[in-house]
Simulated scan of single mutants.
Amino acid sequence: MSAVKILLEITKNLFDHVSKGLPKEEREPYIERLNELLDQRQAIMDKLPSEYSDEDQRMGQMIVKMNETIEPLLVRQFEEIKHNLSMMKKKKEKNVQYANPYQTLSADGMYFDKKN
C-alpha cells in the first residue's frame, strides 16, 4: 500500500474524529485519540516519496480538501480547551480564596482599605 493511500486513510479517520466535536465529558480519551492520529499522520508524511503518480496526486487533493476542514475545527477545539482550562484555574483560585479569605493578608499587621 502506498504512503499516500495510508495518509489518506489516516486523514479520513482524523476528519471523522474531529467532525464529531469535542465532547463535554470524558475529553481525555478524545484528546489521546486525536494525538495518536496526528502522530500517525506525521510519521507517514515523513515517509512520502518525492514523486507521485496521477492517482497519488488525486488522493493528495482529497487530503488537502479534508485538511482545509480539519484545521479550523482543531483550532476551535484547542481554543475551547484553553478557555475551559483558564475558567477552571479561576474557579480554583476563587475556591481557595473563599475557603481562607485571610490568607493573602499582610503578616506585618498593616491594614489597607480597599474602598477608595
Score class of each variant (00 low, 15 high):
49 P>Y: 01
5 K>F: 15
68 E>L: 03
67 N>P: 01
65 K>E: 04
106 S>D: 06
35 N>E: 11
106 S>F: 02
38 L>Y: 04
107 A>D: 10
42 Q>H: 06
79 E>Q: 11
116 N>T: 07
100 N>E: 07
107 A>W: 01
49 P>C: 02
56 D>K: 05
64 V>D: 01
12 K>L: 11
97 Q>L: 08
21 G>F: 08
108 D>E: 13
72 P>R: 03
79 E>D: 11
56 D>M: 12
38 L>G: 03
58 R>P: 01
6 I>C: 00
101 P>H: 05
23 P>T: 15
75 V>R: 06
98 Y>P: 00
114 K>Y: 11
8 L>F: 13
80 E>F: 03
51 E>A: 08
13 N>E: 13
2 S>G: 05
83 H>T: 05
25 E>C: 01
97 Q>V: 00
7 L>Q: 10
42 Q>E: 11
23 P>R: 15
70 I>V: 07
60 G>Q: 04
94 K>M: 10
43 A>S: 14
16 D>Y: 05
6 I>L: 06
91 K>H: 05
90 K>E: 12
113 D>L: 07
5 K>Y: 15
24 K>M: 11
27 R>T: 12
62 M>Q: 15
100 N>V: 13
41 R>Q: 10
100 N>F: 07
116 N>M: 05
106 S>W: 00
33 R>K: 15
73 L>S: 02
28 E>W: 01
3 A>H: 05
14 L>N: 12
100 N>I: 12
113 D>I: 09
12 K>R: 13
15 F>C: 04
58 R>S: 13
39 D>H: 06
110 M>K: 14
68 E>F: 01
92 K>W: 03
2 S>P: 01
30 Y>W: 15
20 K>G: 14
58 R>V: 11
48 L>I: 04
59 M>W: 12
83 H>I: 02
87 M>A: 09
33 R>S: 12
107 A>N: 12
1 M>H: 08
